[in-house]
Amino acid sequence: MSDSFPRRTWLARFLGGGIAATLAALFYPVARFLRPRAATSSGALEVVAPYRMNELKQAEKTGVWPPPFNFGGKPCLLILVDGEPRAFNAVCTHLQCTVEYRAASQDIFCNCHNGVYDLNGRNVAGPPPRPLEVYQAVKKGGGKPGEEEIIVSRKA
């Protein structure tokens, strides 16, 4: 037996290796456990907005705008521009607060850090680095005229 590999060194290596393997076996499930589970939201690509055209028109008159709603786990902002519906992912591109529509100043505003978007979702002032994600919003015919449902959809 050569002096450079005495028995004690081997024993220490086996012991150390064994402990390391045990720790790895213990920590692996812990690390996996800590990783968030798959999203519980539907991830839907299309939704019928909870507000109809006449409700939005009414909101336009009163100035009390309905709050964003849940679209596939993210808040969706639905507004009227020249009588046509427009929908956005309401998550601010700055630090993920939920934006609001300011009818009076005709812009979309984030209260957290004063980010401003125009009605096309473009970031025009304040810290947001990117425009809002724009969803497609179309009126669905049928029913009474002026009371159409609004279908909001997005690309996968």
Binding site: N70, P75, A90, T98, C110, N111, N123, P127, P129
Partner: peptide, 29 residues
Amino acid sequence: DPFGSAPPNIKPEWYFLFMFQALKDLPAY
């Protein structure tokens, strides 16, 4: 309300304010 708009005056506790304000003042790019 996770899907409602953020209300005005969102502020952290006072001891995070300096970081909060600095992030508010920094431009996007």
